[in-house]
Design a protein around this nucleic acid. Structure first.
Lengths: 224, 224
DNA sequence: TAGATTGTTAATCGATTAACAATC
DNA sequence: TAGATTGTTAATCGATTAACAATC
């Protein structure tokens, strides 16, 4: 039993699903804390998110021992630990690449900043866009990204260029030293092994919604 | 073997993962068709999307028999069938609710229209926003939605209001007769059983990317 | 102490992959 | 016919849920 394995920052890549839920736990913990609570049980935390209590305990146990039998989890401590695990105990600078409609929206979107992600530079290969100033930043050609990666500790790029250019621009990002791409283009990017891609495909998700509606009535609601 | 079960439009709710892949298959089929191909094998289709051929066949078999042993799948026929299955053999009108930065971006986003989803009306509860004209449409209070649902055959709403208002506005949508909500607010919505929600949580996905990077080097790339 | 709640092992469930007879 | 490829059944793998001894 109590062999205290595993450092705060985990050893093995946690399953995708686990990491997603950990982000949810963290948010819920922050909410509970704002409400003045000091501890929660796996049951309380799970109930708030429609997740089974055993699942909550198992997910957390993946990263270490945070709970106190008979008591639950101390909210402040657990939230700190989860922030460290997720790597968001500090801010992350972002490069935004592609300033079409979606890109300009993401630029103004408050949700990223709220969670510690800050867009610090803008890039576009369209000569019409280069030189424009948006939110106090000047749009530069994607060529200029490599310098910035070197100077600042910049790892992540948001990619919101049209599908036809996405692979080619992704190649430029990788060549510049970017190791994480948040991809909004509706194509699967091919990247080297050391580069991580998380893809958001809005159309596919909307199609999923259409499928469920068109299927007609019944079934179980899927809110996550 | 050849007992031809199951009508084109499936009986049971296909697993979420299956539906997502079917959307990908459809896109890839459209690409192949543009390239002038007439048939594909499950192997070819899978390779293009980094999906195993057995998986492709199993996913498709879920909805019926579309293939021809020794030949493969006829692209045009399969694409038509998949469009019918997904319910996108016709356009879907959308109501856009919440016209902050993200909402205004989604309004201009071409990706939805390209896949047959068209925003036909705008709503916001903020008196400052009501009455504004955007892309030729006038912003109305959410109250006014019910009329529209009744007049047009409108089922789906895109919800891009701040987290604090999301549940309350979702309740309004449901009361208006909306049965599908594409939720951008970072909270889990509580809705009646007959209402479907698909949630896009950009911050959580960005946190997942940060986690992977911060974890350091190795591992397997995750492009979908 | 009695009641609550953890971390973990075992049981269940579902999804992916392998294998192959049937078919063109 | 021989080669290719399907649909489907069986085998594997992973993720979720149940159960419970250990602990406060």
């Amino acid at each position: 039993m109590g062999n205290l394995r595993r450092a705060p920052t985990g050893d093995k890549p946690a399953p995708k699903a686990v990491v997603g839920r950990v982000s949810l736990y963290l948010r819920q913990l922050e909410t509970f804390r704002r409400q003045g609570l000091a501890t929660v049980s796996s049951h309380q935390l799970g109930t708030a998110l429609a997740i089974h209590d055993a699942q909550v305990r198992k997910d957390l146990a993946f990263f270490g021992q945070f709970g106190h039998p008979g008591v639950g989890y101390r909210i402040a401590d657990l939230a700190d630990a989860l922030r460290r695990i997720l790597g968001i105990d500090h801010d992350w600078p972002l490069a935004l690449v592609g300033l079409g409609n979606l890109g300009r929206a993401l630029l103004k979107y408050q949700g990223f900043r709220d969670r510690g992600f800050q867009i610090i530079a803008l890039f576009d290969n369209d000569p019409q866009k280069v030189g424009q100033t948006l939110e106090g930043m000047t749009v530069r050609p994607v060529d200029a990204l490599a310098d910035l990666v070197r100077e600042q500790r910049l790892n992540l790029a948001v990619l919101s260029v049209p599908a036809d250019f996405a692979q080619q621009v992704a190649d430029q990002l990788v060549a510049s030293g970017i190791v994480g791409i948040f991809n909004f283009a509706p194509i699967p990017l091919i990247v080297p092994n050391h580069v991580r891609v998380v893809a958001v495909d809005l159309s596919i998700q909307l199609e999923h919604l259409a499928y469920q509606i068109q299927l007609g009535g019944g079934g179980i609601s899927c809110a996550s």
